[in-house]
Every structure is written in C-alpha cells, then in structure tokens.
Amino acid sequence: MEYYSPTDLNEAYALLDKYGEDAIPIAGSTFYMGHREELFDEVEAVINIKQLGLSYIRQDGDGLHIGATTTLNEIFAHGLTRKGPFGILATTVQELNINEVRNMATIGGEVCIAGEVDMPTTLLAYDADIVIGGSKGVRRMSMADFHIGYLNNALEPGEMVLEVQLPQPPANTGGGFAKFERTAADLPIVNVATRISLDDAGVCTDARVVAGAATLSGIPERSGAAEAALLNQVIDAALIEAAAAASADVACINDFRVSAEIRSLWVKCGIEDALKRAFAAARQGEQS
C-alpha cells in the first residue's frame, strides 16, 4: 500500500486518476482506520488530502462554504455556525458526544460516508450542494443526488469532495435537530433534521423534514408527506404533531440494533422534537 500527501490539487487529482477505485482519500481517517481490516485488501493507495487547503468556513452571497477537510469541532467552534441561520450545524456536532472524534472527523468524510453519521441529514435539510473536483474539472451536485445508497455516493473514480455549500436561507428560518441513540456515545440510531421558513404572517413558506441513519435506503431521506403537511400552513403544536404522524413514508430498517417499528416511532418523535425546535428558532428570527 502506498501513502501520499499531495500539497496541491492537481497532484491529488493525478494520484486519484492513477489509482482509480483503488485509492482512498483520507483526512480525519476515522472511517478508514476504523475499518482498516476490511478495507486492507481493497485499498492500494491512501491519499491524505489535509494539505490541500480545504479546511475553511466562509460566507458570501451564495451562502456558507465549508471546505471538505474542516473538522466537526472546527465547525462547532466557528462563529458562523454557532448561531443564526446555520446554528443547526453546531447543534448537530454537539450531539456527537465523543470529543476526540469531533477533533478528527471531517465534513467531507461524513458527506462521503452517509450511513450512521449525523451531518448528511442536516445538510440535506439545508439543501446543501457538494462541490466535487477531479482532473476533468469541478462539478457540483445536490446532496439529494449525491448519495446513492449505504456508504455509497456519486463520486466517479478520480474525483473527490472539495466543499460543501449551504445556500443562505430566507429570513425567519429556523432549524432543529434530534437524535436517538442506545447510549450517549453511540452511532445514531435515528437522526432528524428539519428546517422551517415562515413569512411575516407566520405561514410556513418552506419546510424540510429529513430522517437519517434509520432509513431502509441507508441514506438520509426527506419525508414528503411531513413537509406537505406543513407547507402554506400556520404552524402550531397540532400541525407539528400531524406532520410528524405523516412521516410513515420514510421506510425504516430492521436490524439487531432496534426494530423498524422503533425506528419509525423515533423518526416520528424526532420529527416532532426537531420541528418544535425549528419553529421556535424561526420565530426567534421573526422577532429579531
């Protein structure tokens, strides 16, 4: 096995082209090292992408840009993500009770993995785009299209994730995150991220309701029914409950961890909790 630590993108792309599917880009290395036994025979080259200048968080007219190798704790500590419209990012990080992993794991890694991590759920709720680079150029793809299945994404051989972009949400937007685990330091069994935008009259103009970790598809999924229940309505507790109850359109996985029945219940409860938080945050936006 070969190890490379390229210092510019073209060098990294050349390596990715050379090794194709046998190369794995790593940054935080938590996933690769946690699975090194299984991956040992599959990986010929490890390409460390931490020297490529991809650790950053910045805001411009398009919204928020987060470099692929930005760690979860860097996101947590950053002023742009701690409160305001993107405060849900810090909340999402905070729900992972393992400080050491937060110091290592990167947003790019979480995006590529999907599966039993939290960030992709939140990013889908915020209509994030993934910026993908390779020797053939840079392209962008929505989160919704990026994930194909459990631990599977739309990257072509020779490509890597460069950045995650979150569009600036309208005023009076709030986000909410909720999570169910077996113990406080666990894989997420169910995670839920929601986003609500309100108009001046308090009517819901946009809503995202996303459940992750629990889905049969293995990737975060929007509950169309829950979103439809909210849209163009004045939100109150009863409506939130109705929206949560509509979430049965998210099919959940049944395994030895917990049953699909419990996961469906927790998706419902998580949506209710997360929507309440999102609604409160959106209304706070209203007042400010």
Binding site: R182, T183, D186, L187, F256, R257
Partner: peptide
C-alpha cells in the same frame, strides 16, 4: 450479545454495538 439465529455468529462483536454504560448515561 446478539447471536445470529441461523449461524450462531455474534452480530455485535465490538463496542460499536455492544454498548457499555459511559459517563453520560
């Protein structure tokens, strides 16, 4: 420990899925 009904193999052979109580629990 969760045993596979068919094979008798243990499905949760590590702390990822055999959950010990931690300081926050």
């Amino acid at each position: 420990l969760v045993f596979d009904d068919e094979t008798g193999a243990i499905l949760n052979p590590n702390f990822m899925d055999y959950k010990l109580m931690g300081p926050l629990d």
